[in-house]
């Protein structure tokens, strides 16, 4: 029997190297029980996937359900594998690939501390207005701004603040939810 020398008949690429890397925002609905975050994070690190951001809080007090939002990167097959592996965990109820939905809402909150005097201070205050950031703490030498929005907006705000005396940033990580009347 001759072995075919042409390309694979398989409808999927045989070589995994051909796929492009994409970002995925996964919402993982879990039973809120001790150790559940360790299970989710441990699985991701043990299998060599990256976490770019992670947020978690209980979202349904009666059912003891928490929503973990994970931002990760990988080829489409890698993302599918992460979803399937997460789905195997006993306390995991659902894994939703939010980025697979078109145009999902994405928000992040950041607290940005600026230390400075004079002209820099005025400029920081002026820019914060453009970004609709709120000064939540003020002294004669510092501001703490609270800014919300998509990651790009927060990144842009932080970049602009850097030369104006930015000394510390705290970010929540990404939250995401589907638009429209449907729920996940």
């Amino acid at each position: 029997m001759s072995v075919g020398t042409g390309s694979s008949q398989s409808v999927y690429p045989v070589s995994p190297g051909e796929e492009t890397i994409r970002e995925a925002i996964l919402a993982v609905i879990v039973d809120n029980e001790p150790g559940v975050l360790a299970r989710v994070v441990g699985l991701i690190s043990a299998r060599g996937y990256n976490i770019e951001s992670l947020t978690v809080a209980e979202t349904d007090v009666e059912k003891h359900r928490s929503r973990i939002t994970i931002v990760t990167r990988g080829t489409p097959s890698k993302v599918e594998q992460i979803k399937a592996q997460l789905g195997r965990l006993v306390p995991v109820r659902r894994v939703i690939d939010v980025t697979a939905e078109t145009d999902a809402l994405e928000r992040e909150l950041a607290l940005v501390k600026i230390v400075g005097k004079g002209e820099q201070r005025v400029e920081a205050m002026r820019l914060s207005g453009i970004f609709r950031a709120r000064a939540v703490d003020t002294t004669h030498t510092s501001f703490v701004f609270e800014v919300t929005g998509a990651r790009e907006k927060i990144n842009a705000f932080i970049d602009l603040m850097r030369p104006l005396g930015l000394i510390e940033v705290a970010r929540t990580g990404v939250l995401s939810i589907r638009r429209g009347p449907e729920s996940d």
């Binding site: 072995v3 075919g4 398989s10 594998q81 195997r88």
Partner: peptide, 18 residues
């Protein structure tokens, strides 16, 4: 198995395409 079509039957979805 370069020239085959493949069917995978498994109870564990994470085994598929791994």
């Amino acid at each position: 198995s370069p020239d085959s079509r493949k069917i995978h039957i498994d109870i564990d979805p994470s085994s598929i395409n791994k």
